[in-house]
């Protein structure tokens, strides 16, 4: 087991910092997909302009720097470095070793290619072996079955169902909370060493 390892390099993707020059254009385009926006927040789904995204990036980096309870990574294609999405651990409670996970692959055409899974594997290892968290949570809406299947496939267990917490398109949906404990992740991954 070597301590000298690249925690941010995956098989298909790498985790990298925000590119303030190039990423806002790309992400602004993603935000016009309101299905994506709905899956990321229960607030009113609204597209965001390039300038708004730039401001958001400033706020994210300020928070990463000052609050110490947020890690935000962009997901980039290993081949051409193109911006595919983002993954973050937010609301970390250091006292209890708890954090919340958020993941997005922006372009619908780029989904189901293994990018998200690759990024999740890296961030799970980062959360459990670098940050020493005890558990990670993810909140997924019932109308997003692919995401529910995705997290369960990667070892998350369904823990909470907030009944009918969402009203969308005239229909109610549950909000599902999933969780994975460090021990469960270790059992699945032999300590993250079975690369």
């Amino acid at each position: 087991m070597s301590i000298d390892k690249q925690l941010f390099d995956g098989k298909l993707i790498d985790l990298r910092p925000i590119d303030h020059e190039k990423d806002p254009q790309v992400e602004s385009r993603w935000t016009h997909d309101l299905t994506l926006m709905r899956s990321l927040s229960h607030k009113i789904a609204m597209p965001q302009s390039v300038a708004q995204i730039k401001k958001k990036y400033e706020a994210i980096e300020k928070k990463v720097d000052e609050s110490k309870n947020l890690f935000h990574f962009t997901i980039r294609d290993k081949q051409d470095n193109r911006y595919l999405g983002f993954i973050r651990i937010e609301g970390i409670e250091w006292t209890h070793g708890m954090g919340n996970l958020k993941l997005a692959v922006g372009d619908e055409a780029e989904r189901n290619k293994g990018f998200g899974g690759d990024a999740l594997q890296l961030v799970l290892r980062f959360a459990f072996n670098e940050l020493n968290l005890y558990r990670l949570s993810a909140v997924v809406d019932e109308d997003n079955q692919p995401a529910l299947r995705f997290f369960k496939r990667h070892g998350f267990m369904e823990e909470v169902r907030c009944r009918k917490a969402l009203l969308r398109d005239g229909q109610t949906w549950d909000v599902v909370h999933l969780g994975i404990l460090r021990d469960e992740w270790l059992a699945l991954n032999a300590g993250g060493e079975n690369e």
């Binding site: 209890h96 070793g97 005890y134 949570s137 823990e159 909470v160 909370h177 969780g179 404990l181």
Partner: peptide, 10 residues
């Protein structure tokens, strides 16, 4: 009851 977040707190 709607569920429990396992070991959320120490």
């Amino acid at each position: 009851y709607e569920g429990r977040v396992r070991g959320a707190m120490q």
